[in-house]
Design a protein around this nucleic acid. Structure first.
Length: 767
DNA sequence: GGGCGTTGCGTTTTT
DNA sequence: CGCAACGCCC
């Protein structure tokens, strides 16, 4: 995305900083506490800023940059500042810009690890066996390539799935291991000892395709530095100040990369929180942050412990929880916001009741005029979302799911981009394979075989091979005709590309290729959404000057900011909540097996448990003022009803800071229609909590008829419906259906796919 | 080559 | 139980 910030042309960031400094009102150090100030002002030597949740970590980072510039210590292009996500990088750019006066282009080396490494690699591509215009493969491309290798090696794809090998490669790359360095034992663990060979073959194939996968971006950049001392020296002297965000998330390759660069300057500042390390399962090494002072001798460790986010009880609860971890550096957070409300704890009969309780509590907050945007529900696993979503749909509570499949990961977006990519870079075989038969052109495996064969024999891209075979009888007449038409279209679009705007061209390609029509003819409930996404893609492309610029952006930035308007409750996993904050946070599903997740315990033992506990810590510390933890005794998983004990984390909660709630009433709000059958176990949580080991006290209440649904609390006022009985409608979640009953603004709909559901009118669209 | 039925699997996710 | 991926059959 282009930065559309206003800029003062011709003025360097440093000059702007100095100008900003000279204005007395804009003293950027104002308002920092003494530790933050220390972290900003200790410019020389290695610094580890242990920044607890909500202690102003990002502020320190950006102020430090401003300070370096203002002191005239270095120019903006001498500062390397790396983050993990594009979101974090963008936020830093914007905030540095604001603080210093607006120039974002002035920080050329502020970006994600990957963005920075790509930039470096493009300059020195030949040194690692690539050409500067190399393409970046996404996971699909990667798997497609590996499948080909497995087939070529006659390896049973059933027993040795390509995805598994892909993750193995990834793990090696995360550790900074090139094929020759992979320990023999590990290399042999796949396909009876073929793992190592396959890795080598895969890397070789990538070079032939002039491509890198995500792991390579770091690995090859690391190799570039290791094998070319002059290049390394150049960057060592360039980067006089190094800043790293979320250091607890770095993997081995990133650590090695940083350490090499840091040998040029000792001015390394890493910011992170060992208590928030929750990505161990994808290669992050908590150990990197735990042994920082050994890796960087003479390191100064600064603890930020003043929390500006949460009230006392919330912070005390989080602290007590995380205190059960042994592998941590240790911090004591404090707040001066006040004690606030206690953390609430509620035991529920099952996940439906849990969802119902959450929705009722939210409705009460709504009556108290709390904005829905300030409320979040954080779950351990997305399977928990179903019950909650169902409930919200029933009562008409607007919500948004954060995370899930990201924009660029959607099939239709990947397909569209593959078309553009093939037009602009015809040598991109993997993208060509993706769209050759999408939409269906009668070009299946059999038809394509000669094309592959010829391409491999001649060492040419698939497109060229296809074109060449048009002059022969190799292909079946139908296939030949089909390919002829497609190649003709490719030529046509290639010509158009010279003459028109890239967005216009994109539209034409999607229409003429039949791709748009494919989804228009698709009757699945997702199809209209996919067409919308394609429109959104075209709209988004307008922000770029050219197709080439757009494609480069897309390969690295896997997400796009979907401006979600309207007041909505946020629903997301604990993982995607890291870094966010909300006034009120619900934490459902604290049950043994789910949270901590059984699999984390089985696969990683104590380390796994501690990571789960950090996840709990992250969850609790998202709340500014109110937090409700809950657990259900029964939950439907894989279609089976299963009962579970409350999480051990609940035992670890500090009693003085937690208040046990009744399950079915909240804040004096008790529905008069509440059936009495619930009274019997209303105090489940309360009783258990007072028992010695209260998680042992899970009593086997008998299963009652479950639902008291929204019907009891229907809005009685007369409501004129815009819909008619029998009318066909579309619903975002359930797809198409026909209206079978209307009561006020509640509709009962017989969905084609999802069966009969009661939904609220505002969620339904006319077709 | 495409459609349909069967089988297997089921935590978290960024670049 | 629900979905996705694969394989078989038309």
């Amino acid at each position: 995305m282009k930065d559309k910030m206003s800029q003062n042309a011709g003025e360097s960031l440093t000059q702007q900083a100095q100008r900003a400094m000279s204005r007395p009102a804009s003293n950027y150090l104002e308002g920092l506490n003494s530790e933050q100030r220390d972290a900003v002002e200790t410019l020389h030597g290695p610094v580890l800023v242990l920044a607890g949740a909500g202690t102003g970590k990002t502020r320190v980072l950006i102020t430090r940059i401003a300070h370096i510039l203002a002191m005239g210590e270095a120019s903006s292009f001498n500062i390397l500042a790396v983050t993990f996500t594009n979101k974090a990088a963008l936020e830093m750019k914007n905030r540095v810009g604001q603080l210093v006066g607006g120039a974002v282009e002035g920080m050329p080396w502020l970006g994600t690890f990957h963005a920075v490494c790509v930039k470096i690699l493009r300059r020195h591509a030949e040194l690692v066996g690539l050409k500067s215009g190399f393409t970046i493969l996404d996971t699909d491309d990667q798997v497609r390539l590996i499948k080909q290798l497995l087939k070529a090696g006659n390896i049973d794809e059933k027993r040795w799935p390509a995805r598994h090998l892909a993750s193995l490669f990834d793990r090696w790359k995360n550790k900074g291991l090139v094929p020759s360095k992979v320990p023999a034992g590990e290399a042999h663990s796949f396909a009876n000892g073929k793992g190592g060979e396959l890795y080598e073959a895969y890397q070789k194939r990538l070079k032939e395709l002039n491509a890198v996968d995500f792991g390579d971006i770091l690995l090859e950049c690391l190799r570039l530095f290791q094998e070319n001392n002059d290049v390394l020296k150049e960057y060592q002297s360039r980067f006089r100040y190094i800043l790293v965000d979320e250091y607890q998330d770095t993997n081995v390759a990133q650590y090695l990369w940083l350490r090499l660069l840091a040998q040029g300057t000792s001015n390394v500042c890493c910011v992170g929180d060992d208590d928030q390390s929750i990505y161990g399962w994808r290669g992050a090494e908590v150990d990197n942050i735990l042994r920082f002072d050994k890796d960087f001798p003479g390191a100064k460790v600064i603890r930020l412990e003043q929390n500006y986010r949460s009230t006392g009880h919330i912070l005390a609860t989080a602290s007590a929880l995380i205190d059960n971890n042994t592998e941590r550096l240790g911090k004591t957070l404090h707040t001066n916001i006040g004690e606030g409300d206690k953390v609430m704890l509620r035991g529920c009969w099952d996940d439906e009741e849990e969802a119902r309780n959450i929705s009722e509590q939210i409705e009460q907050l709504q009556r108290d005029k709390l904005n829905l945007n300030d409320i979040a529900i954080l779950v351990r696993a997305s399977s928990q979302m179903r019950a909650i979503e169902d409930r919200f749909v029933t009562v008409g509570l607007p919500y948004r799911v954060i995370g899930g499949p990201r924009f660029y990961e959607r099939k239709e977006i990947k397909d569209a981009i593959a078309y553009f990519e093939v037009i602009f870079n015809s040598a991109n075989d993997l993208k060509f394979e993706r769209i050759i038969n999408t939409p269906k052109r009668g070009l299946g495996e059999a038809s394509l075989r000669p094309i592959y064969h010829y391409a491999r024999a001649k060492g040419i891209p698939l497109v060229d091979s296809a074109r060449a075979l048009l002059d022969t009888e190799e292909l079946r007449p139908a296939a030949r005709n089909s390919i002829f038409k497609l190649m003709d279209q490719f030529d046509h679009w290639g010509t158009m590309a010279q003459m028109m705007d890239h967005t216009e061209l994109a539209q034409i390609i999607l229409d003429e290729s039949g791709y748009t029509a494919m989804w228009q003819n698709d009757k699945s409930p997702q199809a209209p959404g996919r067409l919308d996404n394609l429109k959104e893609l075209i709209r988004f492309m307008e922000e770029f000057d050219s197709m080439a610029g757009f494609l480069e952006h897309v390969s690295l930035v896997m997400d796009v900011d979907t401006g979600n308007a309207g007041e909505r409750v946020s629903l997301m996993t604990l993982h995607s909540a890291k870094g966010l904050e909300f006034d009120t946070v619900f934490l459902p599903g604290w049950e043994e097996g789910l949270f901590p997740h059984q699999r984390a315990l089985d696969e990683s033992g104590k380390a796994g448990l501690e990571e789960e506990r950090r996840l709990a810590y992250v969850g609790v510390t998202r709340a500014k003022r109110r937090s409700t933890i809950s657990f259900a005794q029964n939950r439907r998983t894989h279609g089976q009803w299963q009962s579970a004990a409350p999480s051990r984390f609940i035992d670890e909660l500090p009693q003085d800071h937690v208040e046990v709630m009744d399950s079915t009433s909240y804040g004096g709000y008790t529905q008069s229609t509440q059936p009495n059958r619930f009274k019997a176990r209303e105090n489940v949580a309360k009783d258990m909590y007072s028992e010695p080991r209260w998680n042992k006290g899970a009593r086997s209440g008998k299963r009652t008829v479950t639902t008291i649904d929204g019907q009891a609390r229907q809005i009685k006022k007369v409501h004129k419906s815009d819909f008619a009985l029998g009318e066909r409608i579309f619903h975002q979640k359930f797809g198409y259906g026909a209206i079978t009953a209307i009561e006020g603004d509640k509709l009962t709909i017989d969905f084609e796919k999802a069966g009969e559901k009661r939904v609220v009118e505002s969620f339904v669209e006319k077709t």
